[in-house]
């Protein structure tokens, strides 16, 4: 029984690993191909099946006048916008989530759950129709084509996720610990910062990671709300998608764009394990 379970477990993990890795391996080998080795039939292994070349990678740093896209500046733009927007969203979202988890709100028929749902419902609207209103809104406050403008929009995209996740995590932190802290003479803010927050680290980490991911991979708003001054990474990469689809450089860019987040994933994993403090709370 136990052996069978372990066998199944590893079997499943291996299958899933293959499934997860396969497209990346395909992207990796494709990134070294050229037009002919993509379109001449299916090939897998460089040097054996096809003659590898670095063109797919080179275009990522060449200037447009030489047929490249030069993703270095957009790379940093993306990092800046994503991190700033995530940070603001996490701070605001955590505060709201704490309120929704610990206090009771009532205004007519609107209760805590409805307010929480209000936050998350902001993500339901298909972004397409928001393009014109957001465009007009940012243009009226003069923030079109700027990093600040994008941050403003991303806060709207990211904060609901932070609130939604944090409410769940705060709910799991026993109320007694804030009460103890308050009795011990902390004011509510100290209780929140010094006692509740450290006990919600897994939640914060997860919420932070989701904010970073959703900010990093957004294409639509970055596309509609910028012109020439500011370019984010996905928008810049898509600029390679010409009449002839350049499978090779898109593959290379997919790998390049996922790289920094893998580092984030390692950090997340580390804190996730470390933050497992809930068990210690009495």
């Amino acid at each position: 029984m136990n052996k069978l379970y372990i066998f199944l477990k590893y079997f499943f993990i291996v299958v899933w690993t293959v499934f997860v890795v396969a497209p990346f391996l395909w992207a990796l080998t494709t990134s070294f191909k050229d037009f002919q080795s993509v379109n001449g039939g299916v090939t897998y292994i460089p040097w054996v099946d096809f003659e590898p070349n670095l063109e797919g990678w080179k275009v990522l740093i060449k200037s447009p006048a030489k047929g490249g896209v030069d993703i270095i500046e957009p790379y940093f733009n993306s990092m800046f916008v994503t991190c700033t927007a995530s940070l603001i969203s996490i701070i605001l979202g955590t505060l709201s989530a704490y309120a929704l988890s610990r206090y009771t709100f009532k205004a007519g028929f609107v209760k805590n759950n409805d307010i929480t749902f209000f936050f998350i419902s902001q993500r339901i609207m298909p972004p397409i129709v928001l393009s014109i209103p957001f465009f007009l809104f940012l243009s009226s406050i003069n923030l079109l084509d700027s990093l600040t403008g994008l941050i403003v929009v991303y806060i709207v995209l990211l904060m609901p996720i932070a609130v939604w996740i944090m409410v769940d995590f705060f709910n799991k932190v026993p109320r007694e610990i804030d009460e103890t802290a308050l009795i011990d003479g902390c004011n509510p803010y100290q209780a929140f910062l010094k006692v509740v927050l450290p006990n919600s680290i897994p939640g914060l980490i997860v919420a932070g990671m989701f904010c970073i991911i959703f900010g990093w991979i957004d294409f639509f708003f970055a596309f509609i709300l910028t012109f020439t001054e500011v370019q984010l990474l996905p928008v810049k990469i898509v600029a390679l998608n010409s009449s002839v689809t350049p499978w090779w450089s898109l593959s290379a860019s997919a790998l390049v764009s996922v790289a920094p987040l893998i580092i984030v994933a390692f950090i997340v994993e580390r804190y996730l394990s470390k933050g497992n403090l809930s068990g210690a709370i009495k």
Partner: peptide, 26 residues
């Protein structure tokens, strides 16, 4: 000269949204 590059399918909307909003970013 500042140049941005947009996939074919999006050229229309990329210019149309600002045009309709009364602007000419390009």
């Amino acid at each position: 000269v500042e140049v941005t590059h947009t996939p074919a399918g999006d050229l229309y909307s990329k210019a149309m949204v600002p045009f309709q909003a009364g602007q000419a970013p390009y």
